[in-house]
Design a protein around this nucleic acid. Structure first.
Lengths: 213, 213
DNA sequence: GTCGCGCGGATTGTATGCAATCCTGCCCAC
DNA sequence: GTGGGCAGGATTGCATACAATCCGCGCGAC
């Protein structure tokens, strides 16, 4: 467990990023206690920095902190995951609407090539890679929308969902339907039909929520 | 001994809450510098607590913090206010839909009496009080929806908007239309029509955004 | 045997001190 | 007069020290 030797670079946010990464990748398990002095020692910084990091991670919903009792990795329940998906549904619906209104031809080209690549990987049965491309497609749509507020909120919601990330795409038949849903979104954006893009995105994420249940 | 008595209640969050209140009420002006040691002295706590509070307020979007240069009260531009309203629009739309599905008869009664009180105050030309009741109506709808994730995000967005809070209702004619929009929302909830409630809420908040521009 | 209770270790909460960084104003070269 | 740079003060960044709180465990009363 000796990974202390990478403090050289710039690294002031490093402690926080390390922690975040350890949580979202599951290296720190849900409900695991986060003892400040242990973290401080293992990351080679002082408790002060760890505390600051924990405060921020708490605000991001990754950590739960109760006074005098310390912090632990927050467990998001399935019902909460559904709530998060419902919220993402309307936020990304908004973003999709705007993306449809604002997309340039290049933007549409990007989306279509992501879609084509998804198709290819799907036929090769590499469902995990497909799931990663899903995320990329959603990210690209957000960029195109140019809506920073929505992007920020969606980002925070996503980081709480990593635990469920690969879960739905693996269900039998889900991958085909998911692809069709994404294709519909891209088609709507390509024709600059905001209403249709929003509806398609909401349908898509509702289906994901259904799949989770 | 005596100061312990003071601390029995809820004292530890005091510094943070003081700061937040000073910002949202405008006692601390946008762009004003927040010097840690000054705040510490004036609130009677140490810099450590001030720093922790500033970290949290930064995450809430009330404060802007740049490394080695300190914190200042964040100025939210009008274009950003519009973004925030667009975001609220879809989030509260979701909440209104759920509220319509879940409202009990008592809930509907509450909403209607808030509406009646609004009407009364409007006829008495007390527009600021009307605006406060607006906020109360929106809060109550959120409660009824039972959607904690949406509620949390909306709360954060609202605290960034206080500067604009009373601005729109004072526009000539806006008060009448605003009342009609709220009445439509309540009517939709009363008939448990989720689609209509969501549409009404989105229309309402779009109009507020228009009024702001 | 079980319940209450207090003691000690572990852990968090807060304050303080020192180092690092930045900003201001001044001096000097040109 | 203008621009570059360089002190000195102001302010933040980080670490450490001390105080407050919590939790588990053992002991005794019943």
């Amino acid at each position: 467990m000796n990974e202390m030797v990478d403090n050289l670079g710039v690294a002031p946010l490093r402690a926080e990023d390390h922690l975040r990464e350890a949580i979202v990748t599951g290296r720190l398990q849900p409900n695991e206690r986060l003892v400040e002095s242990d973290l401080a020692r293992s990351l080679g910084v002082s408790r002060t920095l760890i505390r600051a990091a924990l405060v921020r991670l708490e605000h991001e919903g990754l950590v739960e902190h109760v006074r005098h009792r310390g912090a632990r990795v927050r467990l998001v329940s399935e019902s909460e995951a559904v709530e998060i998906l419902e919220t993402r549904s309307v936020l990304e619906g908004l973003a999709a609407r705007l993306a449809a209104q604002r997309a340039t031809d290049d933007d549409v080209g990007d989306l279509k090539s992501i879609l084509a690549e998804m198709q290819r990987l799907r036929e090769a049965d590499d469902l995990l890679a497909v799931s990663d491309l899903n995320a990329q497609l959603h990210r690209r749509l957000l960029e195109i929308s140019g809506h920073e507020t929505a992007a920020r909120l969606i980002g925070a919601l996503n980081s709480q969902m990593v635990r469920f990330q690969y879960r739905t795409i693996l269900l039998p038949g889900r991958s085909e339907r998911s692809f069709a849903e994404h294709a519909e979104i891209v088609a709507a954006v390509a024709t600059h039909d905001g209403d249709r893009a929003e509806a398609a995105m909401r349908t898509h994420l509702s289906r994901v929520a259904d799949a989770l249940r």
